[in-house]
Design a binder for these strands. Structure first.
Length: 750
DNA sequence: GGCCGGGGCATTTTT
DNA sequence: TGCCCCGGCC
């Protein structure tokens, strides 16, 4: 037996050792899922399986990278590098480039990112003189993405009465036509969007028996990470590849399926056993990440979902603290409270800033936390937002590279035709597009032969167009003999993209210049690394192939920086922090108001909350505000129904958040098809949980007290009696606070 | 070609 | 409220 298997628990080991047929590994949060996947691959390799025959698919580059480096530590760099391991998109794009001719593409086709596709759709909608209020580009894009993920080509779409009916009903009868046009335009431009990478792979395998045969023979072991997030296309491709050998191992956690809005189909994991009746099921239920209390609280929450694979996640770590529920009067105060908590807990328990994370449902919530943290000098970093490759100045340069690598790239062409300004305006571009559409050729083709395509422009414009053509042609020619760095460098130099940036020395412009330099540096790094690996001839297209599938997650963010992390719950998936603040736990925010009355969406929101809580290793704080600014309006908010879904015994309520406050919580919206399980009764019978530390008789004005969270303070006023007795206390570091004595936890110092 | 202002709008986003 | 997009204007 291989010695590293000793590091696994029994279930993990069983999952690693079974490789004869299909298996489903249900991996609870923090249960060592990655460890199982890496050891499984390492185990196969140690047993003589060739790395070339193992296909391992992940959703993120980061996951693939981490797994690869861990495998390399066990079996060595050389072997690990020969694995077919990467994201669905990168592995499939590799296959597609190799087999491109069979699909009528050139092997260095361009990959459109979401913005490119949206721009193209916008242009198409405009060309067809459709109302972009009805055909909103974003909506059209989402619809096309959805049908592509469902493996529906334009040819199928225009025959699908159900889809057509829906379009008619929603007043978007031209949808099918837009889809067809978009599809053809992408083909003319020799580009694929993200969804195409899956769809064309499926079509390639479906229509070319010799190709699927080849890859079936090659990939004798298939492993898929985060299976709960796969869409239909991914699911079907796995099926195609698994052929009849069925040595496919899928790993995931149905409780963490939070991407259905992007086409992920939780049914893929729920029905895996029906799909492969002979499959083995392994459950990883021991959570190594979190305290028992956090795990139990999360369990009690997710129990309220109907659709799930039964499991009992448990922890053998310490019991730990209860999850603390904090309330605030406004979103502003919520930000302030969280900031103060972080400052205090850090001091008190010797944490670093990077041990804290603030997780929210929507990006818009980040602002108040930013402000509060900045005010008290807590360093933070926000995840999400513009990635390096989405910055304007970077996209401009990359557009040049793209046009050089693939002159038919429509979006790249449009972006730089008149940038920097060369006097080629919208009218001229319009004419080029019209001619290209008329003849069914690319914009570049029209530009190359303006006479043949009857491009009616005056001689001045014709000269300018010829100049642009010469510029790009020159680059294309040079590119034949230059490597990626040389070409990139030449673009920046010759096009003069930095010139205008140098003109004004605003900090913004300076940072743009830095970004451009960074891009060129990374190009240099890219080329030299490949050269060291023994590939002397690294072209611009190789660089583009690499970066077109990179995201925000892959560049930037220093994980070791001592900063508080702020991000949406979605982006927190897969991460962990010692202390986690889940904020904005309010009705119509978390769960989102869009999920109201839809139990499937509500269950996804609940899974999202589950993901949030299970990010915490030691402490979780759940906060809500009683009012907040939302879409420009000030509105009252009720605590989230999800707070009630957590078993009361694992929660600790602060301040005036008490039993009656829980009871005041808005009754869950009832859906006839779905009755929300309620544990209100449990809350009522569990009052013992609320320890009353003081009664009014013990306290008088002038006393100094030490409050559990607010620290030292002086009592300045006492009001009310019995259950209603309150003390106004001036705290040293928190200012004045009203404490409801029935629930406040403090001790009298003198 | 760039700047200004009004109107519309507003989840989540691994590639 | 604040951002983004578009149209109008210089």
């Amino acid at each position: 037996m291989v010695e590293f298997l000793q590091q696994l628990n029994e279930n993990q080991r069983d999952a690693v050792l079974y490789n004869e047929g299909p298996s489903l590994v249900i991996a609870g949060a923090g249960s060592g899922k990655t460890r199982v996947l890496t050891y499984k691959i390492a185990y196969l390799l140690k047993n003589g399986v060739s790395p070339y025959t193992i296909l391992a698919l992940t959703f993120t580059n980061k996951a693939a990278r981490e797994m690869k480096s861990r495998i390399a530590q066990i079996v060595g760099e050389e072997t690990a590098r020969r694995l077919w391991m990467g994201t669905f998109h990168s592995v499939f794009s590799r296959i597609l480039r190799r087999e491109a001719d069979k699909m009528g593409f050139r092997s260095d086709f361009t990959i459109y990112d979401a913005q490119d596709s949206k721009n193209l759709l916008k242009a198409i909608i405009k060309e067809k003189s459709l109302d972009d209020k009805v055909y909103k580009p974003a909506t059209v894009q989402a619809r096309i993405s959805k049908v592509k993920n469902a493996l529906i080509t334009p040819a199928l779409y225009e025959k699908d009465t159900e889809l057509l009916n829906t379009d008619n009903q929603t007043g978007k009868a031209q949808m099918s036509e837009i889809y067809t046009t978009y599809w053809n335009r992408c083909r003319t431009a020799e580009v694929m969007d993200f969804d195409d990478l899956l769809l064309y792979t499926y079509l390639l395998f479906r229509d070319h028996p010799e190709v699927i045969e080849h890859y079936r023979n090659q990939f004798r072991y298939i492993l898929v990470d985060e299976y709960q997030d796969t869409n239909s296309a991914q699911h079907e491709i796995i099926r195609q590849l698994a052929g009849n050998h069925h040595r496919v191992c899928v790993v995931g956690d149905d409780a963490q399926s939070i991407y259905s809005f992007r086409g992920a189909n939780i049914g893929n994991i729920l029905n895996f056993q029906n799909m492969y009746p002979e499959s083995k099921l392994f459950k990883l239920e021991q959570n190594y990440r979190s305290t028992q209390t956090i795990v139990n609280a999360a369990n009690s929450l997710i129990e309220k979902n109907r659709e799930q694979i039964p499991k009992r996640v448990y922890s053998e770590n310490t019991v730990g603290e209860k999850l603390q529920v904090l309330s605030a009067y406004s979103d502003y105060e919520e930000g302030y409270q969280v900031a103060m908590q972080i400052a205090q807990i850090r001091m008190l328990h010797k944490y670093e800033y990077k041990d804290f994370a603030i997780l929210y449902r929507t990006n818009a919530q980040s602002r108040v936390f930013e402000e509060a943290l900045r005010k008290i000098n807590i360093p933070y970093q926000i995840y999400g937002g513009l990635s390096f490759y989405q910055r304007k100045e970077i996209k401009d340069i990359i557009a040049y590279m793209r046009l050089i690598a693939n002159p038919n790239d429509e979006e790249a062409f449009k972006r730089i035709l008149n940038y920097p300004a060369r006097g080629i305006g919208a009218t001229t571009l319009d004419k080029i597009v019209k001619a290209a559409n008329l003849y069914g050729v690319s914009l570049w083709e029209v530009l190359s032969n303006p006479i043949d395509y009857n491009l009616g422009v005056n001689s001045g414009t014709a000269t300018k167009l010829a100049g642009f053509h010469r510029l790009i042609s020159g680059f294309i020619e040079d590119n034949l003999t230059q490597n990626a760095y040389e070409t990139g460098h030449a673009i920046v130099q010759r096009v003069g993209l930095l010139n205008e940036l140098y003109e004004n020395k605003t900090p913004e412009e300076l940072s743009r210049v830095q970004n451009v330099n960074e891009l060129i540096n990374s190009l240099y790094g890219f080329v030299s690394t490949r050269m060291e690996e023994g590939n002397p001839d690294i072209k611009i297209r190789d660089f583009l192939a690499e970066i077109s599938l990179l995201t925000d997650q892959d560049v930037g963010k220093d994980e070791n920086a001592d900063r508080v992390s702020m991000m949406t719950v979605h982006s927190a998936k897969g991460l962990e922090f010692k202390n986690v603040f889940v904020v904005g736990l309010e009705e119509d925010l978390f769960p989102s108001e869009r999920s109201r009355g839809n139990y499937k969406e509500l269950e996804e929101e609940r899974r999202l909350f589950y993901v949030a809580i299970t990010r915490a290793r030691e402490n979780a704080f759940l906060t809500y505000s009683k009012s907040r600014f939302h879409n420009g309006q000030f509105r009252q908010s009720a605590p989230s129904r999800f707070l009630k879904d957590i078993d009361r015994q694992y929660l600790k309520f602060s301040e005036e958040m008490n039993v009656s406050a829980v009871e005041r919580m808005q009754a869950p919206a009832r859906n006839p098809a779905y009755t929300e399980p309620s544990n209100l009764s449990r809350i009522k019978s569990d009052e013992s949980n609320l320890v009353t530390y003081q009664s009014i008789g013990d306290l008088s004005v002038g006393n100094t007290i030490r409050h559990e969270r607010f620290g030292l303070g002086k009592v300045i006023e006492l009001t009310g009696e019995k259950d209603n007795a309150k003390a106004k206390v001036e705290f040293e570091s928190f200012g004045s606070k009203q404490l409801l004595l029935k629930f406040a936890k403090f001790e009298i110092i003198d």
